[in-house]
Amino acid sequence: MSASTPAPVTVIGLGPMGAAMVEAFLERGHEVTVWNRTPARAEPLVARGARLAESIEAALGTNELVILSLTDYDAMDALLKPVAGALAGRTVVNLSSDTPERTREGARWVTAAGAEFLAGGVTTPPSGIGAPERTYTFYSGPRDAFDRHRDTLGVLTRPDYRGEDPGLAALMYQIGMTMFWTSMLSYWQAIALADAHGLKAADVLSHARETFASLDMFTPFYAERIDAGNHEGDVDRLAMGTASVEHVLHTMKDAGVDTTLPQAVVDLFRRGIAEGGAADSFSGLVELMKAGK
């Protein structure tokens, strides 16, 4: 195969993400073999040129590069362990979400079966697949395997290699998800408060966007200080922040909306006060989180 010829690839798992991956490969001229527990999901992709394997063994045996797009690593085990003998000589790229340790366990098992294993953490929804100029995926595992398949993986998103430890891609992905889910819940909380006062989501949208954008000023400032162990209260103080988050909580209670999220925030701030951090920056709360206190 010449360097300019798109490499053939097998995709297992045809949910919205897997289907988007197949479409991106087809658009770039790759031969794509697919398999899914529910064969009907493959029909639109077959109509566009994909080849449906008659069994998962056949799917694994067709191409050296095998991409998994599944719910989690339990799903990988359920599908691949019964056909472990078909894995030898393959490069398995698992783009399913799971914990770093679960990813390491999966990598050890796949490697023991005779395959190379790359883990991936996709940072975009299906709509961003096929747009590497604006989306990216974390990868970790054997560097040589990543380098061999970088161009093919780059059809989907921009590959961001993080190291040999297979758990690193999952770690980076979960760091992002930690921020995403909590941030979006804060947005739902704000919309609930607005609604209690007769405002629509559209009425507070511009303010919400400006608030989220302002966080970009804070993250680099505090990152440098946290890495230096500097929680000096010269810019902000935990006592002041505690008063602020308590005002938020009281506002929610007065409006009659759910207070689960703001109460959790208040509880964390109060724990920081109890640990003697009232005069320090609220960045000191990260030390409570690190220690699991």
Rank of each mutant, 00 (worst) to 15 (best):
W109N: 01
G49L: 12
G276T: 06
R104W: 08
F218R: 00
K293Q: 14
A208Q: 03
M172Q: 13
E64R: 15
F117M: 00
D195Y: 12
P6N: 09
S183K: 05
A112Y: 07
F138W: 07
P100L: 03
P159W: 00
S96Q: 00
V83Y: 03
L45Y: 12
L26H: 07
Y73W: 08
Y139V: 00
D165N: 08
L79N: 00
P166T: 03
T137A: 07
M252N: 15
D98V: 07
G276W: 02
L45S: 10
S244W: 03
T111V: 05
A145G: 02
P6S: 08
G176P: 05
A190G: 15
D234I: 02
F282Q: 12
T103N: 00
S127H: 00
D160S: 11
Y161W: 08
M179R: 13
D258V: 04
K200R: 14
A243Q: 10
R209H: 13
H30V: 02
A78K: 11
V11K: 06
M172A: 14
T103G: 00
T242V: 09
A86R: 09
A78H: 07
R51Y: 06
T157G: 06
M252R: 01
A213L: 05
A213V: 03
I12V: 15
L238Q: 06
V257M: 06
I226Y: 07
F212H: 09
I273S: 04
P166R: 03
T182D: 11
